[in-house]
Design a protein around this nucleic acid. Sequence first.
DNA 1: ACGGCGATGACAGTAACTGACATCGCTACA
DNA 2: TGTAGCGATGTCAGTTACTGTCATCGCCGT
Lengths: 197, 197
Amino acid sequence: MGRWEPDAPGRLTQAALELFVERGYEQTTVLDIAERAGVTERTFFRHFADKREVLFDRRNAMQEAVVAAIAAAPETLPPLELAGLGMAAAGDFLEGRREHAGRRAGVIAANPSLQERELLKLAALSDAVATELRQRGVPAPEAGVAAEAGVGVFRRAFERWVADPSAPDLATCVRDSLATLRALAAARPRGRGAVTR
Amino acid sequence: MGRWEPDAPGRLTQAALELFVERGYEQTTVLDIAERAGVTERTFFRHFADKREVLFDRRNAMQEAVVAAIAAAPETLPPLELAGLGMAAAGDFLEGRREHAGRRAGVIAANPSLQERELLKLAALSDAVATELRQRGVPAPEAGVAAEAGVGVFRRAFERWVADPSAPDLATCVRDSLATLRALAAARPRGRGAVTR
DNA sequence: ACGGCGATGACAGTAACTGACATCGCTACA
DNA sequence: TGTAGCGATGTCAGTTACTGTCATCGCCGT
């Protein structure tokens, strides 16, 4: 074809984020995105399965970072610790892209349709973590629950991180939330740790 | 108009579930569903926001049951206990509809598009639980984390419940998973609960 | 020069949704 | 009893997300 610019996916993602911020997700057509990126609508769908997917990393770099962090952790750590450490790695991953992650999160938060996709990615992340834990010898039920708890903790930590500008590192937020979970799990009915049994 | 049958939404949901099981979600058109239910396509979209929504209860009865269960629980219970008790109520709710829930879960499991919607509903459930916990005086961060953990636990329990025919009550599965989470949260690096610290 | 390969454009087609308007049947009320 | 109004539906045209198919262009190795 006529000479074409390299990295069509990258330009499409960039164009899409700009347009979504400018006029909103629903008010932006795939054709709009394609035109700003200098390609046709058809090319958009060659790189992304659907309109939402343009906001999500095709290489799944964050998930790989999480899995790698768990795989590299010392043998002695218990499952929930591993999951937490993985999610902290996810925090570090996003910390470098704070501004971009913030804009992106804003767009997603404004669109249920995009939230669904985000949730699906997080579910996939949970499955990946569970698989990695099992690989390291954690029994299936524990692995599943630990992964689910880890991702849940991450979601709340992320929420705080984007909402509160005075919040610390995302990884720190994650560790805070995990500590909260530990405290909750240890709580006994009225009179913590006392007589109740 | 010509005399019309009552409960169009109900017949649409029924028709949709049948067709999804018979030929699959993607192979079923909204027109197909509408025709089997004896209405037009337009009427379908008057009752459901989109094609996926037809599989989800418009009254959100389960969520209400969960919130009610938490609201009715004794004052003395700690947050994670409340969340767990709420999810057990969700289990009881689905237990009566086991067969229907099973078929529905099968269809959803086969379609990422439907999984996304399910995940969104669960996220809404998590928010509702968190809100209810805050209403009962639980501080925001604890409420959020407890709700997230509760729903996570529920997901894994539900997974087991549908996959394993020999599994007990869903509510029992939920309590099992919650116990697993508690054990995980208490685990210390190598030598559980012992000298490590 | 040539042939194949990868990325793209061009174009037609399906199906999910939406908006606007007409119609029908029931209910309340004069 | 008739009629005005309301709620649920049908009709129809239109937008947009997404897919299949085929032609074209530039590059790369032989």
